[in-house]
Nucleic acid binder design. Sequence first.
RNA 1: GCGGUGGUAGUCUAGCCUGGUCUAGGACACCGGCCUUCCAAGCCGGUGACCCGGGUUCAAAUCCCGGCCACCGCACCA
Length: 573
Amino acid sequence: MERMEEKLDKYEVLQDLMRRRGFAWGSFEIYGGSRGFYDYGPLGATIKRKIEQKIREAFQREGFFELETPDITPEKVFIASGHVEKFVDPLVECRKCGARFRADHLVEEALGIDTEGMSAEHLTQLIREHDIRCPECGGELSDVWYFNLMFETRIGPYGDQKGYLRPETAQGIFVNFRRLNAFARNKLPFGVFQIGKAYRNEISPRQGMLRLREFTQAEAEIFFNPNETEHPHFDEVKHEVLRLYPIEHQLKNLGMIEITAEEAVKKGYIMNTLFAYYMVMVKRVLLDIGIPEEKIRFRQQLPEERAHYSRDTWDAEIHSERFGWVECVGIANRGDYDLSRHMKMSGADLTVLIHYDEPKIVKKLEVSLNMKRVGPKLKKDAKRINGLIKGWDEEKKRELVELLEKDGKVTIDGYELEKDDFIIKEVDEKITGEKIVPHVLEPSFGIDRPFYLLLENSLVIEEDRTYLKIKKDMAPIEVAVLPLVAKEPLKGIAYDIFRTLQKEGFIVVYDEKDTIGRRYLRYDEIGTPYCVTVDNQTPEDGTVTIRDRDTREQVRVKIEELPEKLKELIFGS
RNA sequence: GCGGUGGUAGUCUAGCCUGGUCUAGGACACCGGCCUUCCAAGCCGGUGACCCGGGUUCAAAUCCCGGCCACCGCACCA
């Protein structure tokens, strides 16, 4: 009970801190606010950019290409992607008590049947036929309607084209596949990423920043040959230990396991080294952002949890004192779902030619009519039937030849044809490669959730101070320069140091207000890792002190050495 | 969306039940000044609020209705 209060306390303290010191708060405050939207203040926006930058750098280290595509997207794209059909919940309302339910869940429960893909009309019909009633009050239920979680809009002044705000950034990458593939010079695998906004009209957003209607994602789509699922650099990461929570362990309540990436693949927990490689990458990015290792785990999604496009998904979850394990990154095997769907819908060729090491020589039957002989017989139909035969596949041609060998004749389209009516040749065909639809592995980072969880995990409440023990290079203000007292010559010297550090590229502030202790705590609270203090010794020997946020200890350094020293301390370089 | 509780300066809160004495009080924070030589010291001065919209009433922070937002429970979370 006491612990519960502490947790609530910490959450309250953090919410207060985020608002008061300019990290983040609910949007549109002066008009009463709107659920599911959050603003990033000056310090929050800085941290958010730093998180994005860490992810960007990680993707770039893998050689991925960055892309930027529109938020507003024509309907066709999401018909192809399945979002128009599948990104919906069938809802039903009780006419008596007004309670709302998932219609499919009610029907499944009442009749024990699979409702996957059923229309609203069908569900309504089933509810009427079997007189399914409100589980709360027994009242009559309304008709079923589908609620799509995408925000709709109209493109153009006459509303001629329907559009949606994208519910994921991924589709912008898939629809650009031909150009991206050309950019990659037709060579798999390659990765493309996009950092941008996505929108979901959540039925009931709650939990602060954890379920937003507009949020930022960093998604990478790795296009690979499904026959080549080994990552060439897996050796570099194979000893990394991952904390896994596989499906089976969830179903049988077996708890989590800690296992190296290599063992996880060997024992079949993770399907291949390609998948495992990117799980390690995701873990390292989260560590780089400053999430403590013990707060990270990978949970495999249960089949019924998976999105419509997913064959297998592992979520990187971060532990929150307040909310438990929170999904922050999804790593999904999307197979060829998206490219195949876009290929069908648009007619574009989204395949890649996979070259064989050596061209394959394949024996191939060429069968056609001997027009000289059959022409007079078939007259007008000769050309048509010839085309028909040429278009047959290998198997059908073989059958034809066998029949001719056996019977000496065959009937096609009402005409009886003899062996000599055909020209049959066996030729060698050189095949240089094979066209495949690439498969996709997708590590998809949320940005807002790690942002919140980074702050929550960084917040330290002590007897005499509350401070953000945020990873030093993630701090929104990296250095504060403080004259011990607001008097010359200390003020002037401090201000000069401030300008120098600013020009050196630090995010730095100058502050002379209030007593020194108060200022230290002011910067501790927003996570500033170092305060540079100009004291009475400074005018004498040109040294200042650097105070450490976490230990409160001070070291004295020469002013000229400050930029170098601070870079080393903050960025470790 | 449903039900419950709530919404007073940047933050926490007094006042609300029992309408007027509220020109809305306090603390912290913030701004200006004085003082101040290392971890939230002190003094002086200052800025700043009744969530929004209706209604009842001579009179509404206070009572009633609707909306919005927050928290809790339910439902939802591809």
